[in-house]
Structure formats: structure tokens, C-alpha cells
Amino acid sequence: MPENDAFEERLRQARERHGVDPKPASQGQLPQGGTWGVGFRAGVEVVSALIAGVLLGWLLDRLLGTWPWLFFLFFVFGGVAGVLNVYRLFKPRRLLK
């Protein structure tokens, strides 16, 4: 029955899209929430890496009294880490070493 098959396929795709089924085989792939979901996740990764970098730089500056140089340096590190996070988000985890 072709119609039935098509329905099963659509159901499977829909379940996958909404993350209803836990994916047994894929390692560390998050449920894909459409383009908006992907964009939102990438944005969150960049912003949180920036926050972490800025906080770390600011704290080190306070400890060492080097304000504002480490702050600037870790701002850049935060940006780089954000790009790295986004890269890891889309890279299959198997290849990650």
C-alpha cells in the first residue's frame, strides 16, 4: 500500500523533527528544531561563550590588577570559543577528536 508507506514515512519524519523519538544511533545530535531552532542554538552558543570569556577576563583582571587588558584579550578568546562551539554544533561528533 503506497499511501500507507508514505504516511509512515511522514510520521517518522515528523517524529524525528520534533524529537519525539530518542535517536539511538546518532551520537550527540540534538533534535533539529527547524531553521529557527538551529539559528537560535548557534546564537546561544556564541553569546554564552562571549559571556564566559568576558567574565573570566574580568575576574582575572580584578585578581591581577591588569584592567582592562586581560578583559580585551578574553573578549577575543570568547569570540573564538563561540565560533568553535558553533563549529562543534554542526560537526558530527564521531569526527571530533
Binding site: S48, A49, A52, L56, A81
Partner: peptide, 24 residues
């Protein structure tokens, strides 16, 4: 000198991204 701070910041960003995602 570049990789280690970047990896540390990336590691520290994990709880932040985890919490911001849910809260936002």
C-alpha cells in the same frame, strides 16, 4: 597559548549556554 584559553572558555561556556537556552 591560543588553543588552551579558547578551550577553557569553551568549556566554561557550557553551563551558560545550557541555562540560557532553557530560560530564553
Amino acid at each position: 597559548p591560543i588553543i588552551i584559553p579558547v578551550e577553557i572558555v569553551s568549556y566554561l561556556s557550557r553551563p551558560i549556554s545550557l541555562s540560557i537556552r532553557l530560560f530564553a
